[in-house]
């Protein structure tokens, strides 16, 4: 699935995202999101960082630039992480392209 760097990504209406006890919990709303009837999703540490950045309805380019400024690390790795995260979560129908704010 191709990731559009100039697009804004937000939470799909097929899931409900919640923050409980410091954890991001993604609860399927539509059928077929998870394999088992009681499966939920959480995010790893990097996923949480990227997820929080997406909440401002910024384009991926903006998200990547902000993360590069905030995090000391290899710029290429940051870009790879963000694009990988978006690719994975759009494939899982958790994120979709949304209108900019």
């Amino acid at each position: 699935m191709k990731v559009n760097r100039s697009a804004v990504y937000g939470v799909s209406d097929e899931v409900v995202a919640r923050e409980i006890a410091g954890e991001i919990i993604i609860v399927p709303l539509s059928g077929g999101i998870a394999d088992l009837e009681d499966e939920l999703f959480t995010l790893n540490e990097m996923g949480v960082v990227i997820w929080r950045k997406l909440q401002g309805r910024r384009s991926l380019n903006e998200v990547i630039e902000e993360l590069k400024e905030e995090w000391q690390g290899d710029d290429g790795e940051i870009e790879t992480d963000v694009l990988g995260f978006i690719e994975e979560l759009t494939r899982r129908r958790i994120l979709v392209v949304v209108e900019p704010a």
Binding site: D38, V49, W71
Partner: peptide
């Protein structure tokens, strides 16, 4: 930020 060994950012929890 550093890459984790796991390729998965979202984790299914049973």
């Amino acid at each position: 930020m550093s890459r984790v060994i796991s390729p998965s950012y979202s984790v299914k929890v049973d």
